[in-house]
Amino acid sequence: MPVLRTVQPTWRKRTTTAHLVLWGGWLALAALFAWCWREMTKNTIWAFVWDAPEQAADLGARMFPPRWSYMERLWWPLWDTLNIATLGTILGILIAVPIAFCAARNTTPSVYFVRPVALFVIVASRSINSLIWALLLVAIIGPGLLAGIVAIGLRSIGFVAKLLYEAIEEIDHGQVEAITATGATSAQIIDYAIVPQVLPAFFGISVFRWDINIRESTILGLVGAGGIGLQLQASLSTLAWPQVTLIFVVILATVVVSEWVSAKVRGAIT
């Protein structure tokens, strides 16, 4: 009886070319990494790096214990920090809402002119961290809470507007059509068909941003824009490490509390 022999196919996960491309990609990434590493560490003084554990131990020794008595000088800056975050968030939201409506494809007054401008404002605001905004504003309008509030506000515009315009673009169009069919004006359509649909998203986004802003406003003082960061800057420049430790602890506690509040509020909304 003749034995039928077929060619045994060898099984491979990918075809040879796909394999090559994949490996080529990883190799390129590795090469890029190596080049970047060399470029980045060109001016690194390795002695400092090898010295680091010692430095760390030294720093640790100087940082502990925290100087708890310094706390009484921190309450007021903490209150300022809270205000910077809250007022900045409100400022940002006030500007972000109209921009979001201009940027959403389905509500923008003009797809070819207004929308690109709104999108650019969003990207510009999002690309620049609030600390950089603060740096600029301190140089322009002088140090203080106002610079911090405006910096937080400017950074929040992009964040809130981006998430909000995405929510606006995702609304159910049927409801808009139904309200349009009643003979409503544009303002009434926004009020009755669009706002109710995006309101929960809006509250969620705002509280979320407020939480992030608390976190960011704690360090704005480093560049002179008010809040607890001012104390941090002062303590750092006088090398008062026990105070720095206390400030870190306070910042950490603030961040944890604001995160908890924001999670609670967002949970209650939805």
């Binding site: 409801q175 059509e177 139904a178 069919a181 009643t182 009755y192 109710p196 649909q197």
Partner: peptide, 30 residues
């Protein structure tokens, strides 16, 4: 002209998050 032409929709197209009364009253928007 639209306000004198009533329309009823396939998926109802009510504004889900408004109350029944607000939905009915939205018929007067025009």
């Amino acid at each position: 002209a639209r306000r004198r032409i009533g329309m009823i929709f396939q998926e109802f197209a009510l504004v889900e998050r408004l109350t029944v009364m607000e939905n009915v009253l939205s018929g007067r928007l025009g």
